[in-house]
Amino acid sequence: MTDDRPILALIPGDPTGIGPELTARILAEGKLADVARFVVVGDRRVLERGARFAGVTLEIAEVASPAAARFDGPVQLVDLGNTDPDALPLGEADAEAGRLTGETLARAIEFALAGDVEAITFAPLNKRALYDGGWRFPDEHKMFAHLLGHAGQFSEMNVLDGLWMTRVTSHVALREALDQITEARIVDALHLADRTMKGAGIDAPRIAVAALNPHGGEGGLFGREEIDIIAPAVERARAEGIDCRGPFPSDTVYLKAFRGEVDSVLAMYHDQGQIATKVRGFMKGVTITAGLDTVFTTPAHGTAYDIVGQGTADTGATEAAIRLSARLAARRRAEALEPQGM
């Protein structure tokens, strides 16, 4: 019988944070073995120290590449030998740790480009450390797109309990975000969200679109973007087959999603989306990079420097990230295998 579980690269994340202990605990418990075949890409010393922190034992087998992995026994590790965790400050954002985290991710991306892994799930990293370590991107999603040579559209999405939150603009100054909100970008973002959710098995995604101004602009009294940009974009996307509605005032649009009236909300700017979702516990959720050829998922929470090394970090969000990665990868494979013309 063939093994059709997707092959997933698991990255321990920033070595100064809780990532390695999360990774070690999940591998030791083995309870996700039914959803994916894992290859850890990273440094053996980092994974072993994570296991110590988590209070678990791992049997590790080193392989030269994921292509050489055998998935019936010990943890399969591509040991990059690049990171000595004891030389880095534990529980702090550190530029060298950021540089090495980026380097490790870059190696995993090479394996994905070679077709040796089908998806990448990474334990928490620190954006600041990554940037200070020389990976000059405002977030990891832009870094992935760059390393993949991806020219088209992509976006971060935040997923929790079947809700998929996304936004038109991301890690830019509010002034710049305002300039970047155009009809074309909104329509593209709606298509991307629709496509990504369908790729995760949601057959008819319903999307609510947030307004930009207070009270949705109140008929043009507090701004005209709703009238001039957002409403026409929603109309166009609807005409192109997307089940989207709006613009809705942003102080209550997320409540529609939390009540189950829609599957997704498209925000216009970072804080508009992140305030409601984080209040609602999306830190327990998953962040994915939508629109790239490689599937990337990560827990939405951060490196939790305050509890590093105690073995108490909750693996829930990372487990959810792995499950989502596996689901997206499995469906991609199924679609690729479908006969042409279907």
Partner: peptide, 15 residues
């Protein structure tokens, strides 16, 4: 700093 930055959290916490 602005209306929705204040209104989004309060409506989310206590509609």
């Amino acid at each position: 700093m602005y209306h929705d930055q204040a209104l989004i959290p309060i409506k989310t916490i206590d509609f």
